[in-house]
Amino acid sequence: MALNPFKFAAPAVFYPLANRLIPWFWTLTGILLALGLYWGFFQTPDQLGGNNAQKEYYRIIFVHVPAAWMSMWLYVIMVFWAAVGLVFNTRLSFMMANAVAPTGAIFTFLALWTGAFWGRPSWGTYWDWDPRLTSELVLFFLYLGYLALHAAIDDQRRADRAAALLAIVGLVIVPVIYWSINCPDPTQCASLHQRSNLTRIEGNILFAMLTMTLAFWMYSFATSLMRLRTLILEREAEASWVQELLNPRGGR
């Protein structure tokens, strides 16, 4: 049987699939969150606090780094679906871009917020106009701009296209965020923010951090699919498959 890649591009086919997938993603989110938090708080006392250079506030890393990663990955995913929507003119692609955006904005906000509460004890300030922090703030405004532009245009198709273009143009900020601390020559980096180097992180801390990252991925899948499900129903309310879904017996 040949697999048709466009089969699931039909909202009527995708809606029940999303319904089936959501509970699985929530289950995985719960397991990974429990494991990541347990490991982060109870398997790291030997590495954090006491005479160690890293104090207890370092535990903010378990939400900060995964949230910051998600903020960038989700933006790339949003741009991917926006571009697919513009090229192939598929309704579901625009809806997917739309479903991802609020979750991405939330993770961007969390990266900034948790970073502030990490910066205060380690740098002595909640905020600094450093390249990494500033570019991440711009990313947050890009998410808000995408959502605001989409909401401001009444015509659904025009809103999809205009917002998709804004998202694609905004993609330029992602490499800026990445290289704002990972520039080739460390002496040329003006960042207050630490460079990221996974190989220098202690094993237990790295394990908790990566587990939390997976948990945030599963969370993002779950919330994006929940939002997508609602968007599909909202936009397809007039379609016969929605009418049958609401009233399977065909009239009461």
Binding site: L48, Y57, R59, H64, L110
Partner: peptide
């Protein structure tokens, strides 16, 4: 949290609230 409870729980608390 070794005296850093305010910072740790402010970060985790906001994450829990928002999510």
């Amino acid at each position: 949290q070794g005296g850093y409870g305010f910072f740790v729980w402010s970060a985790y608390g906001m994450a829990a609230i928002v999510l």
